[in-house]
């Protein structure tokens, strides 16, 4: 069934300075559209902040605060505590948002505190899998094999050697009522998850896979297609964890080989050079493990067609 995204007043205005084809801005715009105007947003340092808030202009038509890199969850906790203390809880829902580095690395402690304390905040991690704002350095959400400026392939290196930290599982381990993953390639799904999350009291964690043409090294016209392939290869499963129960896993009617996802991205080009086969196989094995865990079909060789579901 097709779900139409209802046109809503633009809360994240155009005119920001994000790159052409930026997946992050697509994700943030959709999330805010879904949330509506009755929100207060705390935003970590990073591309989303830098591209939207250069004084004296701002793209934000909602109350919005940027403090530092690692304290966004704590700032949002304070916003929520103040709304409670001032009897203004009905006034706004609170959203904290950060990139993968601001979430899974430097901001993990304050995020854990916010989740554990039970603040009524939706935390959105826009996962573009590296520190893009500072020039594509490796984060703990950088995927296996990826080239970043601090995991460069070389005579002794094949890029990132670790797999992504399972951030949604870490969030879920706090016993919070709602955890989900989403992708910019599936806007109705993303919108639905934001709305569902905001309907729940307590801490919520949503991680949105967001492509970055500059950091990933793909054509800016391919942002949505590349993000969709991450899902369709099984590398980025979309699911919800509601009250600790895995649910609503996005089903795949077929599964593309990971090469279909990796090939358009220069960050993985070394995997297709002589000697890269083993690492390529490891990435495929990760997708296969996800398939086993989430019930995806076997790889359909040559399947790269888009599933617009």
């Amino acid at each position: 069934m097709k779900t139409r995204v209802e046109p809503a007043p633009e809360l994240l205005s155009p005119g920001h300075t994000a790159c052409r084809g930026c997946g992050l801005l697509v994700a943030a715009r959709l999330a805010l559209q879904a949330a509506g105007p009755r929100v207060i947003v705390a935003n970590a340092t990073g591309c989303l902040e830098i591209t939207t808030s250069k004084f004296p202009q701002s793209s934000w038509n909602v109350p919005w605060i940027h403090s530092l890199f690692e304290n966004t969850a704590a700032v949002a906790s304070g916003v929520e505590a103040a709304l409670k203390a001032l009897g203004r809880q009905a006034e706004a829902r609170v959203i904290a948002q950060a990139g993968d580095g601001g979430t899974a690395d430097i901001g993990l402690q304050s995020l854990s505190g916010m989740l554990e304390r039970g603040h009524d905040v939706l935390y959105i991690c826009y996962d573009n899998e590296a520190y893009m704002n500072t020039g594509i350095q490796r984060s703990s959400l950088t995927p296996l094999g990826a080239r970043t400026s601090t995991t460069p392939p070389g005579a002794l290196s094949w890029g990132e050697v670790r797999t992504k930290k399972d951030m949604p599982a870490i969030a879920a381990a706090h016993g919070i009522p709602y955890v989900a993953t989403a992708s910019i390639a599936y806007p109705p799904d993303l919108v639905k998850k934001v709305k569902r999350a905001l309907g729940i009291r307590g801490p919520k964690y949503l991680q949105v896979h967001s492509s970055c043409p500059l950091g990933w090294g793909h054509d800016s016209s391919l942002s949505i297609r590349v993000a969709r392939l991450a899902v369709q290869t099984g590398l980025y499963p979309l699911y919800e964890v509601i009250n600790g129960q895995l649910t609503n896993v996005k089903r795949l009617s077929y599964r593309s080989p990971v090469a279909a996802y990796l090939k358009p991205q220069r960050r993985f080009e070394h995997l297709f050079k002589p000697g890269g086969e083993a690492l390529l196989a490891q990435v495929q094995a990760l997708a296969n493990a996800n398939a086993a865990k989430y019930g995806f079909p076997p790889v359909t060789e040559g399947a790269e067609a888009e599933d617009s579901d």
Partner: peptide, 25 residues
């Protein structure tokens, strides 16, 4: 009558009061 937020570090203590002050408390 106050919200007392027990945080996981001084960095967050300062950040919580930052967010709360920015919200008007």
């Amino acid at each position: 009558k106050a919200e007392f937020v027990n945080v996981e570090s001084e960095h967050s203590a300062a950040s919580v009061v930052l967010g709360a002050s920015a919200t008007g408390a």
